[in-house]
Design a protein around this nucleic acid. Structure first.
Lengths: 141, 141
DNA sequence: TATAAACTTGACTATTTTAGTATGGTATAT
DNA sequence: ATATACCATACTAAAATAGTCAAGTTTATA
């Protein structure tokens, strides 16, 4: 089980904006240089973030992206769902007729994975962008 | 982010043993039929579980596997580490010299992923096999 | 108004991981 | 004897990941 880069990069990039946000929007080029993420890949990610109203864009020279809300109001869970980084502990949920593993009933471990998902989602619901840029992280890149 | 089948199947199979355990060891064939998991794949998984002393094997006709400890003593985290289902939220830990993304310092989101890992591991440390076979799950396959 | 800097879109692809199969054994209870 | 188990290594199809490539459009500013 591992987190994909899409989710991680999205959070990193938005944290970067939260940190360097001012009058001017933050350009993807700057984020790319500071965070070491491919510019082209960032463009893909920000396209999704924009569609989901996490950021707004300013076009043209000296343009870039701005957060639509304050960092406190942007939860990690919001970011993850925007870039479709979702927690899938078990693959048997869609086939409602057949249940887990093609058996008629739910598998013995079903509740366990449900609980785990709940746990993780709670964690991401409690954390927001400002948690990342304040405090201990101030000396980070 | 999703759980691989290896970890899920290992837990399912062991829960199956915990449920049907008696005088005789439980055969992989039975587990395969009850849980709908490929026999050959189960063999691979059980090879790892045996190496890590989660189960012991009884060879020959009417042979099978038995848990080495009582279900209460077998934590989900033990099972996961045995089959190498590990939580990897971030890929930058190995390269201690370079830090995240090849930058000199830890990335701004590093603590977040660490916290998440801690959270998930705690969850798996608290849960054991007997949690799965007792109570609400009794009517499960 | 030229143009560089920035965003937009869609298609494409190499690599890695996953989720198993296939093959060919060895051991032992009955 | 032999069927029923376990053991080990190698192989592979399919999916996901982590991007790249190409070809634009838009707009601030010199």
């Amino acid at each position: 089980m591992k987190l994909s880069t899409k989710g991680r990069y999205a959070v990193m990039a938005l944290a970067d904006i939260a940190k360097f946000d001012g009058e001017r929007p933050v350009s993807l080029r700057d984020i790319s240089l500071r965070q070491g993420i491919s510019l082209l890949y960032l463009e893909q990610i920000f396209s999704m973030l924009k569609k989901n109203q996490i950021v707004t864009s300013v076009r043209g020279s000296n343009g870039g992206y701005k957060l639509t809300k304050s960092p406190e109001q942007i939860k990690i869970s919001n970011i993850f769902s925007a870039v479709q980084e979702n927690i899938k502990t078990v693959g048997c949920k869609k086939e409602s007729k057949k249940g887990c593993n093609g058996k008629s009933a739910k598998c013995i471990t079903h509740n366990l994975w449900d609980e785990l998902e709940l746990h993780i989602n709670e964690f991401f619901n409690k954390k927001n962008l400002s948690d990342l840029v304040k405090g201990k992280n101030e000396n980070r890149v």
